[in-house]
Amino acid sequence: MHLVYPAVLAALLFCVGLYGVLARRNAVLVLMSVELMLNAVNLNLVAFDVWLRDTLHAGQALTLFTITIAAAEIGLGLAIVLMVFRTHGTADVDRLRTLAEGADSIASATDSPTKSGAAAAPQGKATAA
């Protein structure tokens, strides 16, 4: 099998994942998109490993490594999302603006979700577009 098929597939997967990370508003979906990007990378690693006929199969070993890391990462990420949902009542990344310059506290961000959501809306649209 020619290298171009897995490479194109990986690129497509990566772009889908990238779009998901940048455009989706639900944190769970963002995490799933990150998984997609990781798997695109895994696909590349395996494909190039075969194509380069690496005797040590470093690509495959690294793939296993990445899968492990990804499992750990998704576990942590989902736990964080769960905690965020419990405290904020939402898993919408557009509303989680506590890190913004000038945002004084979590409380104010949660107290006025409509306001911050309205403020964030154009931004979200811009990124989505």
Binding site: L22, V93, L96, T98, L99, A100, G124, T127
Partner: peptide, 14 residues
Amino acid sequence: VRRAQNGNVQSYLS
């Protein structure tokens, strides 16, 4: 520069 710091993770990533 501080204006860019709007707290939206996705815009940072973009």
